[in-house]
């Protein structure tokens, strides 16, 4: 095909010294490529600057007190995001614990020959599809499926184990528990995919060596495969945590948007992202600036987590090569 291409425009075939036009085109192209590369760096700087600039009045007015106060009262112009920081971290940690259990389980299931290769591919697609369902759809599903299903369970747990801080309040419908469950489902594909990579990077020889020593399949998995894949699994958890921190719509629909700090899974709570989603559209003046400040807090937390995750991932893949 390419040979006919060259014949067709034989007058300007590639096998001749570049003309001035070619050289200029080349310079422009290279310049454009460099610019596109630099664009991402500039974009991040611009995002930080733009949000920071808008938040400045609120940062000057509330300072660090913003991070240690749990009041959000536009009427009195008093703002603080302690409850949201708590809710963000608490929901993400709990969701990550669940997602880690299921996600790493799925990764082992798919990489350690529990399934025929073709079936494993089908199952992998099913797990990947979990990531394709939009956040709002999970929110809707959470309202009409998870919350009704949790009601009797939560009632029982609260009555029987009410002394335990996590079950210490009665179920309020939209609350931490359904939010955590849906969040775990949304993070699971990330954890499963990256841990699978970690497992499949281990040379087959390693497993053969373990089997050769007379281990059972599970001894090989728990004593050889999982320790070898640790850094990859850890990276998957950190990146999953980053995902969980920024998840917005499903949480805004399920967590109850209440400005309180509680250990109880059955009380409504709030997160930074759902605070932005629920308050921003109606905010004005100083509240908008306070929300920009909250956005900065979220930005800093999630950038830090993602930077750590990306670094760990880079380190673990270098280890494998070296």
């Amino acid at each position: 095909m390419s040979s006919t291409d060259f014949k067709q425009d034989s007058g300007r075939s590639a096998s001749r010294p570049p003309t001035t036009g070619d050289i200029i085109a080349d310079r422009v192209f290279r310049g454009g490529a460099y610019a596109a590369g630099a664009l991402v760096v500039l974009l991040l700087i611009y995002i930080l600057w733009e949000i920071g600039f808008r938040a400045m009045p609120a940062i000057e007015r509330y300072g660090f007190g913003f991070l240690t106060s749990a009041v959000w009262d536009p009427g009195q112009e008093k703002f603080g995001v302690l409850a949201e920081i708590w809710g963000t971290l608490y929901s993400s940690v709990l969701a990550l614990v669940i997602a880690a259990f299921f996600g790493v389980g799925v990764a082992i299931f798919l990489t350690q020959d529990f399934l025929d290769a073709r079936l494993a591919q089908v199952f992998r697609t099913v797990i990947e599809m979990l990531a394709a369902i939009p956040s709002v759809v999970y929110g809707l599903w959470g309202i009409y499926v998870v919350i009704p299903a949790l009601r009797p369970v939560a009632g029982f747990l609260n009555e029987t184990f009410g002394w335990f801080p996590m079950f210490s309040s009665s179920f309020s419908g939209p609350s931490m528990a359904p939010a955590v469950i849906v969040l775990a489902i949304m993070v699971l594909p990330t954890v499963a995919a990256i841990s699978q990579d970690a497992f499949s990077l281990i040379p087959y020889k390693t497993k053969e060596a373990a089997f050769g020593m007379g281990t059972t399949r599970w001894e090989a998995i728990t004593k050889v495969m999982i320790p070898t894949a640790t850094s990859g699994i850890f990276a998957s958890l950190v990146l999953g945590f980053g995902r969980a921190l920024g998840e917005t719509m499903a949480l805004a629909m399920l967590i109850g948007n209440s400005n309180q700090i509680s250990w109880s899974l059955f009380s409504p709570a709030n997160t930074l992202a759902s605070l932005l989603a629920s308050q921003f559209p109606e905010a004005s003046g100083i509240e908008t600036q306070a929300l920009m400040y909250a956005a900065i807090v979220l930005l800093v937390i999630s950038l830090a987590v993602n930077v750590v995750g990306t670094l760990i991932m880079a380190m673990s893949s270098k280890q494998k090569v070296g």
Binding site: Y34, G37, A38, V40, V41, L43, L44, Y46, I47, E50, I51, F53, R54, L239, G242, R243, L245, G246, E247, T248, A273, L276, A277, F280, L291, M292, A295, L298, L299, S302, L303, V305, N306, V307, G309, T310
Partner: peptide, 27 residues
Amino acid sequence: LADATRFIAKVLTGFPSILAGVFVYAS
């Protein structure tokens, strides 16, 4: 520059989507 771009692009894939909204609202 490529190292920096690659790193930031990877970090941005985990960027909370609502912040893109806040950014575009502000700008």
